[in-house]
Design a protein around this nucleic acid. Structure first.
Lengths: 232, 232
DNA sequence: CACTGTAAGCTTACAACGTAAGTCTGTCAA
DNA sequence: TTGACAGACTTACGTTGTAAGCTTACAGTG
């Protein structure tokens, strides 16, 4: 099959390869993404991809960049707390759309323009608010730790959002009440929780959204008190 | 080579297999750990391992459990804040000894007795301090998010602790000052930092230990204020 | 027109991987 | 002596990343 006589195939590009990789990972999970399948999805042999990417690692880096680019950056003038809050919530939502991405983003820190711009914007927002550079850097690191750490736990629980109470209820018998008193209590609490209040029910909504924002605000409060303590 | 006539080999066991896997991952990284190499390290064919573990995934689960078991659990009577602080710091140190473990621990939540005991102890400490079960659960989740998120970033930076300033200084030219003002400032701050104060220099010491505890205390402060706000 | 360079794909090949299925061997109980 | 069985080994299959080289189509030049 030499691709003769057929309709001309859309031209490949690094961009198209990476987007296909993201789509494939979203569908089948990152662990089942291979160069061969990626080629197949693009109507091409695996080795043909190597003209556009330097290898599998490069694909992973590129995918992480694409996902980072989906995160909303705060607009320049926004107050720091609003900016940080929106960014964190946006990052949380984005990673829920791409469950494989949380570990990738944290573990592969390429110096791509996208990543640099991202970091610079965040740091800028904090600097402008009066945080000294050292504290701004720490705040950035802390927030990222929380956002991706939280999402990593959430996503890899493997529980598809709505079904948490049922799943917990099913697991509950495996935890003997006498031995693990507190854990048992907690599981019963989870099983009792409203699966979802009447709020909007977006596609990739997190059943932990409230928990996420709870911890987020706790951290933001802490950062804020750093600021006011310095007499700002 | 039928292992005839030689000295009797130490008997295998699930325990020994997992410990060998941990040692191998510590040395060469998790991504280069294969069933074949693991067998070789134990003087055995790859397939022989399947008598003790059910497959590669089982090995990974077991490794995560072993590492979790290394984390110091607080003694029962300890005040919650001391308990949480020590646990977090211990977890941080443990994961630095096993850099591959942070993502594994977060992503593979098996219901092994080790893990259950761990969770139960933490929750118990918080319950005893007066946190309602819902808040205790959230606090646990938040702290874990931070600990493993932080460590994941730290470890996968790939910078071996002491060399941070030099590495940052080397990377600095790749970040144009005019475009990324704040990032440039931050990198210069990092390059200027004392590589390590005169404090103890343990084997796997983190050059981010101070940063880690900074964020940790910030979160603990937040949790504490939840407690006092309820009139405790 | 022919000639040549190059971009964009294809083919083949290899070593390493996880693991299913079957086989051998030594030990111990009946 | 026989049988069972634990604890290994052997072989084999399909899949993976990618090195190396080959083929085709076309643009530009003379």
């Amino acid at each position: 099959m030499r691709n003769t006589g057929g309709s001309a195939r859309a031209p490949l590009s690094r961009e198209r390869v990476l987007r296909a990789a993201v789509a494939l990972a979203d569908e089948d999970g990152i662990e089942s993404l291979s160069m061969r399948k990626l080629g197949e999805a693009l109507g091409v042999q695996a080795m043909s991809l190597y003209r556009y990417v330097s290898g599998r690692d490069d694909v992973l880096d590129g995918m992480a960049d694409l996902v980072v680019a989906e995160i909303d950056l705060p607009r320049p003038g926004a107050p720091w707390r609003v900016a940080m809050r929106q960014r964190a919530i946006s990052a949380h939502e984005v990673v829920l759309r791409h469950p494989w991405a949380s570990s990738l983003i944290e573990s592969r820190k390429s110096l791509s323009p996208e990543r640099l711009r991202y970091a610079d914007t965040i740091l800028g927002s904090l600097r402008e608010a009066g945080f000294p550079i050292a504290v701004a850097g720490r705040a950035f690191f802390i927030l990222d730790s929380y956002v991706y750490g939280f999402t990593l736990q959430e996503v890899n629980q493997g529980v598809p959002a709505q079904e948490l109470p049922q799943v917990v209820a099913r697991l509950r018998p495996q935890v003997p009440t006498e031995v693990y008193t507190n854990l048992a209590e907690f599981m019963e609490h989870l099983a009792r929780r409203n699966p979802r209040s009447s709020r909007s029910r977006r596609k990739h909504e997190s059943s932990y959204a409230a928990d996420f924002e709870f911890g987020l605000d706790l951290i933001l409060d802490g950062l804020q008190s750093l600021l006011t303590a310095r007499g700002q």
